[in-house]
Amino acid sequence: MTEDVKAPVIFAKDLNLVFQTNDGPVQALKDVNLSIERGDFVSFIGPSGCGKTTFLRCIAALEHPTSGTLTVNSIPPEEARKARSYGYVFQAAGLYPWRTIAGNVKLPLEIMGYTKAEQDARVEKVLSLVDLQGFAKKFPWQLSGGMQQRASIARALAFDADILLMDEPFGALDEIVRDRLNEELLKLWARTGKTIGFVTHSIPEAVYLSTKIVVMSPRPGRITDVIESTLPKDRPLDIRDSAEFLKIAHRVREGLRAGHAYD
């Protein structure tokens, strides 16, 4: 493993994915080249149909590229999935209504064969990580949407995956809750040191969170710009009023616009 430390966690070269639909083939990803380093917080931003979710699903081995190379932790995504190397957070919390919050967080742990004691210890740890102590015995419907999404993040953190893939996890939440969760996510990332892939269509969200912003555009889905953020790692919410922040946001917007002009 030691020689792998410098190797990119996620590496894509000339990645293509074509969906065969009833209306003919659709190029969901075209010639995607990307390298994500350990500890990166990478946002994928673009309009719908740009392939950002598809790319995340390729990393998770939920979709399979038609051509090109893709490795996760230096192994093919399918093997990485089997090795349970990532936690995935979906757009909806998707908690099981028949399980309590603790029961939901335990779900992956049960499947992965952790002992009862270990399960309880981990549930307690990750619930406090997402600030949900005291809600372990509640059922999902007793929690607000934001709390449910935090519980689903806890579920993805419960096992020892060093990659966290998040597909518009805060997309269905209002802006106030979203701001708070963004702040908490940054703290969580700082504390756990995970590599995070984050799909969004909010420019402020992408700029605020990321060390690297991947701007994508549709038809065919492709990367138009990769921006390395110059913001410091420690980011209070009001960093979003700084000139630096606005400069990066402007570049993202330009990238998105350029993608559209191609149409």
Partner: peptide
């Protein structure tokens, strides 16, 4: 989505 979630756990 729920089926995908379980796939991510293999």
């Amino acid at each position: 989505m729920q089926l995908d979630l379980l796939r991510t756990y293999n």
